[in-house]
Nucleic acid binder design. Sequence first.
DNA 1: GCAAATACAGTACCGTCGGTACAGTTTAAT
DNA 2: ATTAAACTGTACCGACGGTACTGTATTTGC
Lengths: 205, 205
Amino acid sequence: MRKGAETRERLLSIAEAAILAKGFGATSIEELIAEADITKSGFFYHFKDKTELARALVHRYLEQDEILLDNLFKRARELNDDPLHAFLVGLKLLAEMMADLPEGHPGCLVATICYQERLFDKDIHDMTQGGVLAWRERFVALLQEISEIYPPNDDVDMEEVADFISTIVEGGIIMSKALREPKKLAAQLMILRSYIKLLFSPRLA
Amino acid sequence: MRKGAETRERLLSIAEAAILAKGFGATSIEELIAEADITKSGFFYHFKDKTELARALVHRYLEQDEILLDNLFKRARELNDDPLHAFLVGLKLLAEMMADLPEGHPGCLVATICYQERLFDKDIHDMTQGGVLAWRERFVALLQEISEIYPPNDDVDMEEVADFISTIVEGGIIMSKALREPKKLAAQLMILRSYIKLLFSPRLA
DNA sequence: GCAAATACAGTACCGTCGGTACAGTTTAAT
DNA sequence: ATTAAACTGTACCGACGGTACTGTATTTGC
């Protein structure tokens, strides 16, 4: 039914924000139902336990993330036919998107889960690992296309460079939070852009 | 007294490992005292509450971290007089150190705390922010020295490049955990090394 | 060698939370 | 009107964080 899915989504959004701000273990079901204005029974109607909430949360997060990245790099490609320039535009669009978040990036669910490994079962860890591997595949494909036209100026494994992008996003989020500089993530993405430029620029070498 | 400090250190080590694996909120005092083989009274003798435990943990962590980085980059400098090569050697030493951890990096306390902000007071956030700023200062000094000899091949703010190093470490830890590849952090540090090489290499330009 | 601080142990208690169980009720689709 | 969906209400358990306070063995300074 429609209304059920709506409540479920509201619960997921509230839970995601709470978990990113306090951690999974410190997030009580009671505070979630208080904010969602439903009863405990209502919560357990949608999720049989806290673990299932986590599973649903990760599933939704990775799905939304994929859609966002799809759109972003598709737009970047439409603006520019050259794969290198398209990628550089994509990184800039991503940085701008991050810079536009007034409170900074709320945090990555994958990172939260990694830093609370013992609270989650194999299923969830498989999901987060799969998410990161999907990022890798996406970026490897883009980088491969670039390196066929622009031979890289350093002997690096393209899979590592692909993971480097995720590394900067994850690290940049932490730096933003730790330094309380919401724009730090965007600035760090621009340094990544600098690396990609130097790595593939034909003017050098 | 000697014995008290010893118990305190043991408690801190146990707590650090537990918090990095389960998060602060999900780490119970009871499990800590069970592993340390003391009573609840013993715990509250050393720390008046959980918050003071966190404070002590961060303090110790940042202190140990500073000593480690001091030694590492001092050694790198002794091996090489040129600031750029010394820095590249330092990054390699760091990568090797990370690669030598059989279970991978246990995690960074600063990152854990960032992803559980609402559980900690301003004091602790000031401490973690101070820690990250100390990293920035350290790396800015090293990079400044390099850039005076080797003009950078791209127009980037050295403060951002300094933060980039911390970003890679924080992000690399998460990638290692998420992918369950203990050596991922080391590999990502080598990509950072590739960037530093390209940024300052005089053969390019 | 003695007082005093240190470093705990023991016990008891409170409120909160995750989770279970199950019966009852409203809402919406067909 | 029927039926499934989407809840509410109530009651209860065990574990845990935290408080409080008393007692005691062990050092250490003097």
